[in-house]
């Protein structure tokens, strides 16, 4: 079976989408830059030209409007933000326009727009180059939010996002870009709204997504050595959330740890906790719901501080063990 890096899987998805659907257009800062988007857009401009692969000026809000307008006029727009922190500049077009358009005009138009945002945390990049904003976008009605954890899902979810016909926020973590996995050739879809159980277990469910999945898998290995059987649930899609999968797993294990790469306050982990607490399942839990996420503070620069800011496998494993002892 053929293995690709995560970045190569994205690159292949983009190439196949551009190749097979002439409505597809890729626009965003740095698609022709040697460093901005990693290797994900390599070779695309040479192959498809500067009318379908467009490197625009730094005008995030304006260019998001452009991508929406092109989508309304028949494009399948893929709009990339190489650092998703800059999506804040485009909030008006994303939240007021793309998200509302379909409902606000009575369903007359759809906005087939994939907004691809990349989390750049680590490397002492500090508070404006590190943010994971999934909760912000998941809060807005009219947007879907996906967050793959591996190249197979990234390729399949990117294809699903572009074919969806509605605005989808597709979030990558740069820490995933060099990870390898088996990726089939050709076009295939991973359904939006469906999570996956990556590892079955019976003592505790750990619900997570994106890069954090890999820290959780390592923590699960560590726990196994101590006789704890961990079930790992990869959300893959943040919105619509696969509640059924989450509740099924928690019903089985009776314990849950939610590990999110975003902030805790008013975020994704809180939403998942609430989904569980809203059902009778809450009375059957053997331990309180436990959340691990980023502290309520802007990302620091210093590596010394980054090391404690992001949840790592040691912290996750210790949390799981404490929960089992409770």
């Amino acid at each position: 079976m053929r293995e690709l890096t995560y970045a190569q899987a994205i690159n292949e998805a983009l190439r196949l989408l551009l190749e097979t659907d002439d409505r597809v257009m890729l626009i965003g800062q740095g698609v022709t830059s040697p460093w901005y988007v990693g290797t994900t857009t390599a070779g695309l401009i040479e192959r498809f030209g500067n009318r379908r692969v467009i490197d625009p000026p730094v005008s995030e809000n304006g260019i998001t409007g452009v991508a929406i307008g092109a989508a309304l006029a028949g494009s399948r727009s893929i709009l990339v933000f190489p650092r998703m922190d800059f999506m804040y500049l485009a909030m008006d077009q994303i939240a007021n326009h793309a998200a509302n358009w379909h409902a606000m005009f009575g369903g007359e138009y759809c906005v087939p727009l994939t907004i691809w945002g990349i989390i750049n945390r680590g490397g002492e990049q500090a508070a404006q180059h590190s943010q994971a904003l999934q909760a912000i976008f998941a809060h807005i009605p009219g947007l879907k939010v996906v967050m793959p954890s591996n190249g197979y899902d990234a390729k399949g979810l990117l294809i699903s996002s572009v074919r969806d016909g509605n605005p989808v926020v597709f979030i990558d973590d740069r820490w995933l870009y060099n990870l390898r996995c088996v990726v089939p050739e050709g076009l295939y879809q991973v359904p939006i709204g469906k999570g996956a159980v990556l590892r079955e277990g019976k003592d505790v469910s750990v619900i997570t997504s994106s890069y954090t999945v890999h820290e959780v898998l390592k923590a699960a290995d560590e726990c196994r050595g101590k006789g704890i059987s961990v079930e790992v649930v990869d959300l893959r899609t943040i919105k619509p959330l696969d509640s059924e999968l989450i509740l099924g797993s928690v019903r089985k294990t009776g314990r849950v740890v939610i590990v999110d790469g975003g902030w805790k306050a008013f975020g994704v982990s809180g939403e998942i906790a609430a989904r569980i607490a809203e059902t009778p399942l809450i009375r059957e839990l053997k331990a309180p719901i436990c959340r691990l996420s980023l502290p309520d503070a802007p990302a620091p620069a210093s590596t010394a501080l980054e090391d404690v800011y992001y949840p790592r496998k040691e912290q996750i494993a210790a949390t799981i063990q404490r929960l089992l002892e409770a």
């Binding site: 257009m25 809000n61 304006g62 260019i63 998001t64 409007g65 452009v66 991508a67 929406i68 307008g69 092109a70 989508a71 309304l72 006029a73 028949g74 494009s75 727009s77 008006d92 077009q93 007021n96 326009h97």
Partner: peptide, 12 residues
């Protein structure tokens, strides 16, 4: 709000 959107339609 619709000025860049009109430009996007023109792009298409």
């Amino acid at each position: 709000g619709t000025i860049p959107i009109a430009v996007g339609a023109a792009l298409r």
